[in-house]
Amino acid sequence: MSASERTLLDVRDLRVSYGGRRGARAAVDGVSLSVAPEETLGLVGESGSGKTTVARCVAGLLRPGAGTVTFEGRPLGRAGRRPPELQRAVQMVFQDPRSSLNPRMTVASIIAEVWRTHPVTAPEGDRTEALHRLLADMGLDPEVAARRAGDLSGGQCQRVSIARALAVRPRLLVCDEAVSALDVSVQAQILRLLVDLRGRHRLAMLFISHDLGVVHQIADRVAVMHRGLIVEEGRTGEVLTAPRHAYTRALLDAALDLDDPVPEDGTADGRAVV
Protein backbone atom coordinates (compact mmCIF):
# COMPACT_ATOMS: atom_id res chain seq x y z
CA MET A 1 0.00 0.00 0.00
CA SER A 2 1.43 3.38 -0.97
CA ALA A 3 1.47 6.36 1.32
CA SER A 4 -1.21 8.16 -0.67
CA GLU A 5 -3.58 5.21 -0.32
CA ARG A 6 -3.27 5.31 3.42
CA THR A 7 -3.64 9.07 3.65
CA LEU A 8 -7.00 10.74 3.47
CA LEU A 9 -6.06 14.30 4.36
CA ASP A 10 -2.59 15.61 3.73
CA VAL A 11 -1.41 19.07 4.74
CA ARG A 12 2.09 20.03 3.51
CA ASP A 13 4.12 22.98 4.71
CA LEU A 14 1.10 25.17 5.33
CA ARG A 15 1.78 28.87 5.92
CA VAL A 16 -0.72 31.57 6.80
CA SER A 17 0.03 35.16 7.82
CA TYR A 18 -2.36 37.74 9.11
CA GLY A 19 -1.95 41.47 8.76
CA GLY A 20 -0.45 43.71 6.13
CA ARG A 21 2.85 43.37 4.36
CA ARG A 22 4.72 45.18 7.07
CA GLY A 23 3.03 43.92 10.19
CA ALA A 24 2.43 40.41 8.89
CA ARG A 25 2.54 37.79 11.60
CA ALA A 26 2.74 34.10 10.79
CA ALA A 27 -0.23 32.33 12.37
CA VAL A 28 0.81 29.05 10.79
CA ASP A 29 4.45 28.80 9.97
CA GLY A 30 5.05 25.61 8.03
CA VAL A 31 2.69 22.91 9.30
CA SER A 32 2.49 19.41 7.86
CA LEU A 33 0.10 16.74 9.05
CA SER A 34 -1.89 13.86 7.70
CA VAL A 35 -4.99 11.95 8.68
CA ALA A 36 -5.60 8.36 7.57
CA PRO A 37 -9.06 7.01 6.74
CA GLU A 38 -11.09 6.40 9.91
CA GLU A 39 -8.35 7.91 12.02
CA THR A 40 -8.83 10.70 14.58
CA LEU A 41 -6.04 13.22 14.85
CA GLY A 42 -6.22 15.52 17.87
CA LEU A 43 -4.78 18.98 17.36
CA VAL A 44 -4.02 20.67 20.66
CA GLY A 45 -2.49 23.97 21.71
CA GLU A 46 -3.32 27.23 23.42
CA SER A 47 -5.08 30.19 21.89
CA GLY A 48 -2.97 31.78 19.19
CA SER A 49 -1.13 28.54 18.48
CA GLY A 50 -2.63 28.38 14.98
CA LYS A 51 -4.77 25.28 15.38
CA THR A 52 -8.00 26.97 14.30
CA THR A 53 -6.23 28.51 11.32
CA VAL A 54 -5.17 25.04 10.18
CA ALA A 55 -8.78 23.86 10.53
CA ARG A 56 -10.06 26.78 8.49
CA CYS A 57 -7.62 26.01 5.69
CA VAL A 58 -8.71 22.36 5.64
CA ALA A 59 -12.35 23.43 5.55
CA GLY A 60 -11.56 25.85 2.73
CA LEU A 61 -12.66 28.92 4.66
CA LEU A 62 -9.21 30.48 4.42
CA ARG A 63 -6.65 30.46 1.65
CA PRO A 64 -3.17 29.61 2.85
CA GLY A 65 -0.26 31.84 1.87
CA ALA A 66 1.74 28.77 0.91
CA GLY A 67 1.59 25.00 1.13
CA THR A 68 -0.91 22.41 -0.02
CA VAL A 69 -3.96 20.71 1.38
CA THR A 70 -5.00 17.54 -0.42
CA PHE A 71 -7.70 14.93 0.05
CA GLU A 72 -6.84 11.52 -1.39
CA GLY A 73 -4.23 13.29 -3.45
CA ARG A 74 -6.63 15.91 -4.88
CA PRO A 75 -6.03 19.54 -3.97
CA LEU A 76 -8.60 21.13 -1.66
CA GLY A 77 -9.10 24.76 -2.66
CA ARG A 78 -11.49 27.35 -1.27
CA ALA A 79 -14.75 25.79 -0.10
CA GLY A 80 -16.86 27.32 -2.87
CA ARG A 81 -14.52 26.22 -5.64
CA ARG A 82 -14.24 22.61 -4.61
CA PRO A 83 -15.86 19.98 -6.80
CA PRO A 84 -19.10 18.87 -5.13
CA GLU A 85 -17.73 15.49 -4.03
CA LEU A 86 -14.86 17.17 -2.20
CA GLN A 87 -17.21 19.74 -0.68
CA ARG A 88 -19.21 16.87 0.74
CA ALA A 89 -16.23 14.83 1.83
CA VAL A 90 -14.93 17.42 4.31
CA GLN A 91 -17.43 18.83 6.78
CA MET A 92 -16.91 21.05 9.78
CA VAL A 93 -18.45 21.31 13.25
CA PHE A 94 -17.78 24.57 15.09
CA GLN A 95 -17.49 25.53 18.74
CA ASP A 96 -20.55 27.70 18.92
CA PRO A 97 -23.50 26.01 17.25
CA ARG A 98 -25.68 29.04 17.90
CA SER A 99 -23.66 31.19 15.56
CA SER A 100 -23.18 28.53 12.88
CA LEU A 101 -26.92 27.87 12.46
CA ASN A 102 -29.40 30.46 11.26
CA PRO A 103 -31.58 30.92 14.37
CA ARG A 104 -34.71 31.67 12.34
CA MET A 105 -34.57 28.55 10.17
CA THR A 106 -36.31 25.37 11.23
CA VAL A 107 -34.23 22.25 11.61
CA ALA A 108 -36.11 20.67 8.69
CA SER A 109 -35.22 23.56 6.39
CA ILE A 110 -31.57 23.55 7.50
CA ILE A 111 -31.26 19.91 6.45
CA ALA A 112 -33.38 20.38 3.30
CA GLU A 113 -31.00 23.12 2.24
CA VAL A 114 -27.93 20.87 2.31
CA TRP A 115 -29.80 18.16 0.43
CA ARG A 116 -30.73 20.77 -2.19
CA THR A 117 -27.10 21.85 -2.47
CA HIS A 118 -25.90 18.27 -2.76
CA PRO A 119 -28.72 16.43 -4.54
CA VAL A 120 -26.76 13.18 -4.84
CA THR A 121 -26.93 12.80 -1.07
CA ALA A 122 -30.65 13.63 -0.90
CA PRO A 123 -32.71 10.61 0.12
CA GLU A 124 -34.91 8.96 -2.45
CA GLY A 125 -38.55 8.67 -1.57
CA ASP A 126 -39.98 10.13 1.62
CA ARG A 127 -37.69 12.94 2.78
CA THR A 128 -39.59 13.51 6.00
CA GLU A 129 -38.98 9.95 7.03
CA ALA A 130 -35.30 10.25 6.07
CA LEU A 131 -35.05 13.47 8.05
CA HIS A 132 -36.55 11.81 11.11
CA ARG A 133 -34.11 8.93 10.74
CA LEU A 134 -31.21 11.36 10.53
CA LEU A 135 -32.43 13.20 13.63
CA ALA A 136 -32.90 9.93 15.49
CA ASP A 137 -29.29 9.06 14.64
CA MET A 138 -28.31 12.28 16.43
CA GLY A 139 -30.47 11.45 19.43
CA LEU A 140 -33.07 14.08 18.52
CA ASP A 141 -36.85 13.62 18.63
CA PRO A 142 -38.79 14.03 15.37
CA GLU A 143 -40.55 17.10 16.88
CA VAL A 144 -37.26 18.95 16.69
CA ALA A 145 -37.64 19.10 12.88
CA ALA A 146 -40.26 21.82 13.14
CA ARG A 147 -38.41 23.91 15.73
CA ARG A 148 -36.30 26.95 14.89
CA ALA A 149 -32.59 26.65 15.63
CA GLY A 150 -32.81 29.71 17.89
CA ASP A 151 -35.24 27.88 20.21
CA LEU A 152 -33.00 24.87 20.80
CA SER A 153 -30.68 24.23 23.73
CA GLY A 154 -26.90 24.35 23.17
CA GLY A 155 -26.67 20.56 23.08
CA GLN A 156 -29.57 20.24 20.63
CA CYS A 157 -27.98 22.91 18.39
CA GLN A 158 -24.73 21.00 18.32
CA ARG A 159 -26.60 17.79 17.39
CA VAL A 160 -28.25 19.67 14.52
CA SER A 161 -24.85 20.97 13.36
CA ILE A 162 -23.57 17.41 13.34
CA ALA A 163 -26.71 16.24 11.51
CA ARG A 164 -26.15 18.92 8.87
CA ALA A 165 -22.55 17.78 8.44
CA LEU A 166 -23.46 14.08 8.23
CA ALA A 167 -26.43 14.62 5.92
CA VAL A 168 -23.99 14.82 2.98
CA ARG A 169 -22.09 11.65 4.00
CA PRO A 170 -18.64 13.16 4.67
CA ARG A 171 -15.47 11.14 5.14
CA LEU A 172 -13.62 13.69 7.26
CA LEU A 173 -15.15 15.70 10.07
CA VAL A 174 -13.22 18.76 11.23
CA CYS A 175 -14.32 19.55 14.81
CA ASP A 176 -13.08 22.89 16.10
CA GLU A 177 -13.63 22.98 19.87
CA ALA A 178 -16.91 21.23 19.15
CA VAL A 179 -17.72 20.47 22.79
CA SER A 180 -15.95 23.35 24.54
CA ALA A 181 -18.90 25.71 24.87
CA LEU A 182 -21.28 23.08 26.22
CA ASP A 183 -22.29 22.32 29.79
CA VAL A 184 -20.24 19.55 31.36
CA SER A 185 -23.09 17.02 31.36
CA VAL A 186 -23.99 17.85 27.75
CA GLN A 187 -20.35 17.73 26.63
CA ALA A 188 -20.26 14.05 27.59
CA GLN A 189 -23.34 13.38 25.43
CA ILE A 190 -21.89 15.06 22.34
CA LEU A 191 -18.54 13.30 22.73
CA ARG A 192 -20.33 9.97 22.96
CA LEU A 193 -22.39 10.86 19.89
CA LEU A 194 -19.30 11.82 17.87
CA VAL A 195 -17.54 8.60 18.80
CA ASP A 196 -20.63 6.50 17.92
CA LEU A 197 -21.05 8.24 14.57
CA ARG A 198 -17.35 7.97 13.82
CA GLY A 199 -17.60 4.20 14.11
CA ARG A 200 -20.91 3.81 12.27
CA HIS A 201 -20.02 6.08 9.36
CA ARG A 202 -16.31 5.19 9.26
CA LEU A 203 -15.34 8.84 9.66
CA ALA A 204 -11.90 10.32 9.97
CA MET A 205 -11.68 13.27 12.34
CA LEU A 206 -9.46 16.28 12.79
CA PHE A 207 -10.38 17.08 16.39
CA ILE A 208 -9.19 20.46 17.59
CA SER A 209 -9.37 21.11 21.30
CA HIS A 210 -7.60 22.84 24.14
CA ASP A 211 -8.80 20.10 26.51
CA LEU A 212 -6.09 17.45 26.76
CA GLY A 213 -8.38 15.13 28.73
CA VAL A 214 -10.98 15.01 25.97
CA VAL A 215 -8.30 14.52 23.31
CA HIS A 216 -6.80 11.70 25.34
CA GLN A 217 -10.19 9.98 25.33
CA ILE A 218 -10.93 10.09 21.62
CA ALA A 219 -7.81 10.73 19.48
CA ASP A 220 -5.61 8.02 17.95
CA ARG A 221 -2.78 10.44 17.35
CA VAL A 222 -2.15 13.93 18.62
CA ALA A 223 -0.25 16.92 17.24
CA VAL A 224 0.77 19.71 19.61
CA MET A 225 0.87 23.21 18.16
CA HIS A 226 2.78 26.16 19.56
CA ARG A 227 3.27 29.49 17.84
CA GLY A 228 2.31 28.28 14.41
CA LEU A 229 4.37 25.10 14.50
CA ILE A 230 3.73 21.48 15.35
CA VAL A 231 6.24 20.85 18.11
CA GLU A 232 5.36 17.23 18.76
CA GLU A 233 3.27 14.54 17.16
CA GLY A 234 2.65 10.89 17.87
CA ARG A 235 0.36 8.25 19.31
CA THR A 236 -1.94 9.92 21.82
CA GLY A 237 -0.95 7.67 24.69
CA GLU A 238 2.74 8.25 24.10
CA VAL A 239 2.60 12.01 23.68
CA LEU A 240 0.35 12.58 26.69
CA THR A 241 2.09 10.16 29.03
CA ALA A 242 5.72 10.57 27.92
CA PRO A 243 6.00 13.95 26.19
CA ARG A 244 9.31 14.73 24.50
CA HIS A 245 8.97 18.41 23.78
CA ALA A 246 9.31 20.97 26.56
CA TYR A 247 6.16 22.76 25.46
CA THR A 248 4.07 19.58 25.63
CA ARG A 249 5.45 19.00 29.11
CA ALA A 250 4.53 22.55 30.12
CA LEU A 251 0.99 22.07 28.80
CA LEU A 252 0.63 18.80 30.69
CA ASP A 253 2.08 20.29 33.87
CA ALA A 254 -0.42 23.12 33.74
CA ALA A 255 -3.42 20.95 32.89
CA LEU A 256 -5.50 20.16 35.92
CA ASP A 257 -6.79 16.72 36.71
CA LEU A 258 -9.43 16.05 39.27
CA ASP A 259 -7.77 15.35 42.56
CA ASP A 260 -6.08 11.94 42.62
CA PRO A 261 -8.57 9.27 43.51
CA VAL A 262 -8.58 8.11 47.07
CA PRO A 263 -7.25 4.61 47.84
CA GLU A 264 -9.75 1.95 48.77
CA ASP A 265 -9.30 2.34 52.51
CA GLY A 266 -10.27 5.99 52.22
CA THR A 267 -7.51 7.21 54.51
CA ALA A 268 -5.30 9.00 52.01
CA ASP A 269 -4.33 12.54 52.65
CA GLY A 270 -2.11 15.02 50.85
CA ARG A 271 -4.49 16.89 48.59
CA ALA A 272 -2.65 18.32 45.61
CA VAL A 273 -1.76 21.94 46.20
CA VAL A 274 -1.73 24.17 43.14
Binding site: S153, D183, S185, V186, A188, Q189, D211, G213, L252
Partner: peptide, 18 residues
Protein backbone atom coordinates in the same frame (compact mmCIF):
# COMPACT_ATOMS: atom_id res chain seq x y z
CA UNK B 1 -17.78 13.17 33.01
CA UNK B 2 -14.39 14.75 33.75
CA UNK B 3 -11.75 13.03 31.60
CA UNK B 4 -8.29 12.45 33.03
CA UNK B 5 -5.44 14.23 31.27
CA UNK B 6 -2.55 11.88 31.94
CA UNK B 7 -4.33 8.57 31.52
CA UNK B 8 -6.84 7.47 28.96
CA UNK B 9 -10.28 7.26 30.54
CA UNK B 10 -13.28 5.63 28.91
CA UNK B 11 -16.03 7.92 27.72
CA UNK B 12 -18.55 8.42 30.49
CA UNK B 13 -22.13 7.26 30.14
CA UNK B 14 -23.68 10.67 29.76
CA UNK B 15 -26.75 11.89 31.60
CA UNK B 16 -29.76 12.16 29.33
CA UNK B 17 -31.31 15.52 28.50
CA UNK B 18 -30.21 19.06 29.20
Amino acid sequence: SVPAVRTRTALADPLPGA
